[in-house]
Amino acid sequence: MHETLTDYNFAYLDEQTKRMIRRGLLKAVAVPGLQIPFGGREMPLPYGWGTGGIQVTAAVIGPDDVLKVIDQGADDTTNAVSIRAFFAKTAGVATTEVTTEATLIQTRHRIPETALTSGQILIYQVPIPEPLRFIEPRETETRKMHALSEYGVMHVKLYEDIAQFGQIATSYAYPVLVNGRYVMDPSPIPKFDNPKMHQNPALQLFGAGREKRLYAVPPYTDVVSLDFEDHPFEVQSWDSPCGLCGSTDSFLDEVVMDDAGTRLFICSDTDYCRIQRERADG
């Protein structure tokens, strides 16, 4: 459908840049959850729109890869369409909307509902990689806090939530402890998705373009959501099933249907929703 661009290198980035990013990724995999600074490049898409994820994808993609891109869990959201078209154009790779067919999945704000398998790579777009940033705005300070595992402030923040609201009032970008060492921002995925990161067979790579940071969770790594013994971590649940496929175990988006405020709850993962409907029909 798209003609492959010839004016630019395969997958847009030059090979030296890809090598630089891969070196960063190797270090990130070696020290799970640690943020690795990298020489993020200016991309032809705006900062904040997935430049980190795009650079990671460009660095690891090969001609035989099959790429899936989702935003809010959906393959058909405008930015997912735009990024998928970017790689179809610059790398000429095959693309898919089927989670199980993809070798690389670039995502913004969701982890697919369909379980990932060994050999797949999930690439997250990250806006603010520093989980401590809204507690301590200075990079020089947060770097020290990570080095010393000084994470007490994060627990204090969660405790203050409980004191004020009776529960932890963080519903997305919920902080996790990776491999028992580094507190990590899982990117703004709903906390619903946090348990999927734990001991996942797929390689999880994170790219923050504007902030110029890479980090990773290797396959089968412990990823624990921070909580308290008397206030254990819990995920969201819905009273009604998906209005399209009837699923009761997926993350639901709320769609306002009319001016009277009628609501429809539907799967945010469009591929998962399709599979459930096909299963029901078949």
Binding site: P46, G48, W49, D71, N79, A169, Y172, I189, F192, E254
Partner: peptide, 21 residues
Amino acid sequence: WGFVSHLKLPHYVDFQSELAL
């Protein structure tokens, strides 16, 4: 401008999480 403008991107999932909360 990139980061400010990204607020135009869909945030249904995050917002849904906040709504539920």
